[in-house]
C-alpha cells in the first residue's frame, strides 16, 4: 500500500513483517506456517480493534483516503455498460460532477456523482470534487431525463463542498443548489443517494434528496467541514478533532438522528482496501432499494420522500 494514515501504521508494519517472514521462509525453505498464521491472526485482531474504535476525526481521514474509490471507480465496477452524458446546456460541462446511463444487472439507471481526481492533473480537472453551478444544473438535467424515461436515479456523493469561487457566485451557486433541492422532491422515479466519501453541506445535499439516503461506513455528512467549523467557532484551525466530535458527523451518528436511512458496510480497513468488495455491497444496496421503491406509485414515492425530510428536526414547543 503506497498511502496510509497514521493510525494504519501499526497494521502496515505488521503486514510488512508478515511479508518479510514469508519471503525469508521461502528463501531458506523452512516451515513457518504456525508463526505466519499467528501473525495473521494478530493483524486481523489489530485491524478489528483499530477500525471498530475509530474516532470521528479518523473516519473523516478515512473518507479522504487518497486510495478511496471515487464515483467513476464504482460506476465501472457495478455497471456492465456506461454512457457518460455531458453539459448543463447553458454554460459548460462541469467535470466535478459526472453522470450518465448505466446498466446494472441488465437494468438502466441514471447514475450521477461528484468526481475527485487521483493525481494533481486530475484533481485540477475535477476541481477536487467541488462543483460549480453548472455541475448542479447538469445533474438536474440528467435527473429530468431519467424522469422522462422513467428510470431510477442513483447519486453518489463525495465532495468537500460546492466551489466557493467568483464565477460560481456570478452564475448562481445558491440558486442552482436551491433549485435542485426543490426539483428533486418533484421527480416521479425512485432516487437512491449514497454518501461514498465526503458529504459537505449544501454541495452534497444538492444531489442528495432521495427516497433512500445511505452513508458508507467510513464517510461523513453534515453542514460544514470540521476544519471550517473549527475556524469559525474556535477561531483557529487547530480544533478540527474537537469539531468533528462535536458535529457528530459519522454514518452511525446520522443514522441515530434518523437523518439517513441506512449504513452500507465497508470491508474491514475501509473501502480502499478492497474496492471490488465495497462496490459489490454498494451494488446490492442499489438493486434491492430500487426494487423496493419501484413498487410504489410516483405519487406515493413523492409523498413519502417529502414526508421523510419534513420530519427532520429537533425543537421544543
Amino acid at each position: 500500500m503506497s498511502n496510509y494514515l497514521d493510525f494504519e501504521k501499526p497494521i502496515i508494519e505488521l503486514e510488512e513483517k508478515l511479508a518479510e517472514m514469508k519471503r525469508i521462509a521461502e528463501e531458506n525453505d523452512v516451515d513457518v506456517s504456525t508463526a505466519v498464521s499467528e501473525l495473521e491472526g494478530k493483524i486481523e485482531q489489530l485491524k478489528i480493534n483499530t477500525f471498530n474504535n475509530l474516532t470521528r476525526w479518523q473516519r473523516v481521514m478515512l473518507s479522504r483516503h487518497p486510495d478511496r474509490p471515487y464515483t467513476l471507480d464504482y460506476i465501472y465496477e457495478i455497471t456492465s455498460d456506461f454512457i457518460e452524458l455531458h453539459g448543463d446546456r447553458l454554460v459548460k460541462d462541469d467535470k466535478a460532477i459526472v453522470g450518465g446511463w448505466g446498466l446494472i444487472d441488465g437494468k438502466t439507471y441514471m447514475i450521477i456523482g461528484h468526481q475527485k481526481g487521483r493525481n494533481t492533473k486530475q484533481r485540477q480537472m475535477r476541481n477536487f470534487g467541488m462543483a460549480n453551478p453548472e455541475g448542479y444544473r447538469k445533474a438536474l438535467r440528467l435527473m429530468m431525463l431519467a424522469d422522462k424515461f422513467r428510470k431510477p436515479i442513483v447519486t453518489l456523493i463525495d465532495t468537500p463542498g460546492a466551489y466557493p469561487g467568483l464565477e460560481a457566485e456570478e452564475r448562481g451557486q445558491a440558486e442552482a443548489i436551491a433549485k435542485n433541492l426543490r426539483e428533486m422532491f418533484r421527480l416521479n422515479v425512485p432516487i437512491v443517494c449514497i454518501i461514498i466519501g465526503e458529504g459537505a453541506s449544501g454541495g452534497a445535499l444538492g444531489i442528495a434528496i432521495g427516497d433512500k439516503v445511505a452513508m458508507m461506513e467510513n464517510t461523513w455528512y453534515t453542514v460544514i467541514s470540521p476544519e471550517s467549523c473549527s475556524s469559525i467557532l474556535w477561531r483557529s484551525w487547530d480544533y478540527k478533532e474537537q469539531a468533528a466530535e462535536a458535529l457528530k458527523l459519522t454514518a452511525k451518528d446520522m443514522l441515530s438522528f434518523k437523518l439517513i436511512d441506512d449504513i452500507i458496510e465497508e470491508p474491514l480497513g475501509g473501502a480502499h482496501t478492497n474496492a471490488k468488495q465495497a462496490a459489490q455491497v454498494l451494488k446490492n444496496y442499489i438493486i434491492s432499494k430500487t426494487e423496493e421503491l419501484s413498487k410504489l406509485s410516483p405519487e406515493e414515492l413523492k409523498r413519502q420522500r417529502i414526508a421523510k425530510f419534513c420530519t427532520m428536526g429537533s425543537f421544543i414547543e
Binding site: R186, F257, F309
Partner: peptide
C-alpha cells in the same frame, strides 16, 4: 447561513423548507 450547533439537523432544514416550497409551487 446554517446553525453549526445543530450540525446534520441544520443541513436538513434546507431540504425540508425546499420540500414544502415544492408543494406550494405545485
Amino acid at each position: 447561513g446554517a446553525r453549526m450547533m445543530e450540525s446534520g439537523y441544520s443541513l436538513m432544514q434546507m431540504a425540508k423548507t425546499s420540500a414544502k416550497l415544492a408543494l406550494l409551487h405545485e
